[in-house]
Amino acid sequence: MTNIFVDATVPDDDRRQKLYEGALFLYSPTPSLQSLVAFTRQLIEEAFHPFDPRTAQFELPVERYVDILAKLKPFFIHHPRSKELVRATLRELGCDPELTYFDVPRLRSATSNDYLTTGIAFAFHPHRDTWYSAPPCQLNWWLPVYDIAPDNGLAFHPRYFDEAIKNGSRNYDYYEWNRTSRATAAQHIKTDTRVQPKPEQEIELDPQIRVIAPSGGVTIFSGAHLHSSVPNTSGVTRFSIDFRTVHVADVSARRGAANVDSESTGTNLRDFLRVTDLARLPEEVVAPYDQAEAPPEHLIYQPTIVPLSAADLPADAARAPV
């Protein structure tokens, strides 16, 4: 059984434990989440101007659409304002800022009617984040930028939370992904040839849970949950934000959800930043999660940021450092 907690006022230690057991936590928009959504909309709408970003896919050739996303997404991801608002959100929702670490927020887009489903707008098949070298204690935070509907949101498949699935995670190494695949997303327009762990057996997608949150409402769930992008047939592009957190005590003690089927190697833990000061997790805490050595330059992905032109941005965003 999957328990769903709505606007629950529970201590973070209790919340994390329930999440590790498969619960979902939903929170209404907070001031920081509303600010994050407003900032994100501003960037999106300026980038797609003069088109409505939710319907721009019907106005633009796919190559031009990809070019816009290829500049917009990393600019948002690594913008200091994005990090600032995530940090404020975590404080508002009861995370200990000295002990909680987060990774940079991602901007996702899911176009409608199979316009673009690969590469930079990858439509995620059913998967667990643990297949992608996430630790058992990773928690995912997901929120829509615009209101969503049942046919363009996120789906959970709770039957498989504690049931193993044959999957391709044995072929996934996080450091190899950093070396060869993360920077090439925009090149995959028709097909996506990158290693993406998938189920290797038939799975039952129903019953499933679809959370229809308002714009800025956040869903928190364990990275061990099997979840997927709902095939978008809504007629509008879905834009969403997600980021992840870990608690340093849980990382050190190797607490978290049970690992029922992941065989991935490497770890994404070096990507996480402390809420208080953006320091990374201590190496002695991360090292036990490594199965093999890798060159230092592959342990943490270093993106190349392509600044958007001042004409494409609001003045305050254009002046901010990246």
Rank of each mutant, 00 (worst) to 15 (best):
A318N: 00
S252C: 11
P150L: 07
S264E: 00
A279R: 10
S222L: 08
D206V: 15
S234G: 13
E176C: 10
P105F: 08
R254A: 12
S252W: 12
Q291R: 07
A149Q: 15
I212Y: 07
A310M: 09
L299P: 01
G153H: 06
S133P: 03
D312E: 12
F124R: 14
H49T: 10
P295R: 04
Q42N: 12
S28F: 04
R41Q: 15
E297A: 12
P314C: 13
A110H: 11
P135E: 09
N3K: 15
Y160G: 04
A310W: 07
Q42V: 06
R319H: 06
Y146G: 04
T55A: 10
V211H: 03
G216T: 13
A213M: 09
R238D: 11
G256P: 00
K190T: 03
S112W: 02
P144A: 14
A110V: 10
E46S: 13
E176F: 06
R182P: 03
V10P: 01
H78N: 13
V246D: 03
L313H: 06
L278H: 12
L299R: 09
N268E: 11
A134F: 08
P197T: 02
H78M: 09
N3C: 10
I4E: 01
I209R: 10
D173W: 03
V37F: 03
L69I: 02
N140G: 13
A110W: 10
A253V: 03
P303G: 00
A38W: 10
R81S: 00
H127T: 00
L154N: 02
P29D: 11
G266E: 02
D7R: 01
H78L: 13
P61Q: 11
I241K: 05
R81D: 07
I305V: 10
I241Q: 01
P126Y: 01
D103Y: 15
T245S: 14
Y146H: 12
T2Y: 05
V248M: 09
L60W: 08
D14M: 12
T117Q: 00
L205K: 11
L139D: 01
S234N: 09
Q302A: 12
T267Q: 04
R319G: 05
H49G: 07
R244P: 01
E163K: 12
L36G: 02
H247L: 12
M1Y: 08
V10K: 14
G22D: 00
F25N: 04
R182Y: 01
P135A: 14
D192T: 04
E202G: 13
P288Q: 10
D192K: 03
R210C: 11
L26Q: 05
N259P: 08
R91T: 11
G266Q: 01
T267W: 01
H125S: 08
A70R: 06
S234V: 11
S35C: 07
L139R: 04
V6H: 14
F48A: 08
I148Q: 13
F48R: 01
